[in-house]
Design a protein around this nucleic acid. Structure first.
Lengths: 110, 110
DNA sequence: CTTTAATGTACACATTGTAGATATTCAAAG
DNA sequence: CTTTGAATATCTACAATGTGTACATTAAAG
């Protein structure tokens, strides 16, 4: 086979945010990154739920930060994108690109 | 305000297929277009349900073909993308582009 | 009349999207 | 020591989207 289940709209954003952040990607900055780049506002719940589901599908991996964090607050859970996640992202992009091909003139560039 | 509810992953594909086909876009060719361009296979039900929902949201408009079609079969229902649909497509693309920016080197071009 | 092909419609159910409430943990203030 | 506040995460519930299967309609071909 080739492509397992396609990844959803918001899931893509979350995967991409984790990639963009690189080291130190956890809930809060993931949320900020999406809000900053897309301008839409996102609830905390939406982010955490999605991170969790993506991990369940093996597209993300996670681990807990220091058991005794310096600052206040609960220990952070950090994420990174797995191979399968990268693959999924590429597949989504490829599909969309194919569908867009040739439409720029019609829809206006940029 | 600006963007209403974001459009889903598959919804985007359907909107784009309708655009690509232009005149004469109805269920069967929409399905074919998506299968052809993305290589994934799509059930008829998925297409019709999605066309219907997109119309419900005002992103697509539709009308019935000839009351007495030449060939056999039920009358075709044709679709076109409305203003709001084009806007939605552009917004999705913009959001994804923002999120992708700078990742090509990391993920490999193409 | 029966079968076949082209379409669309109805329904059901799984997966995603999203928000709100609640819990955990640590530090700083009293 | 107790309270309060900030930073995080987890839980829960429900709405929206994704997808397949079964059923209905229509007309041409047998």
């Amino acid at each position: 086979m080739g492509g397992q289940a396609p990844v959803g709209e918001f899931e893509q954003l979350v995967l991409l945010a984790v990639m963009q952040i690189g080291d130190g990607a956890y809930g809060v900055p993931v949320r900020r990154e999406i809000e900053r780049r897309t301008g839409r506002d996102v609830s905390r719940g939406a982010v955490y739920t999605t991170l969790d589901r993506l991990e369940g599908k093996g597209l993300l991996g996670s681990w807990l930060g220091e058991p005794t964090p310096e600052r206040s607050g609960k220990a952070k859970r950090f994420y990174r994108v797995e191979r399968a996640g990268i693959k999924a992202l590429k597949e989504s992009r490829t599909a969309l690109r194919s569908m867009w091909t040739g439409l720029e003139p019609v829809l206006g560039e940029l």
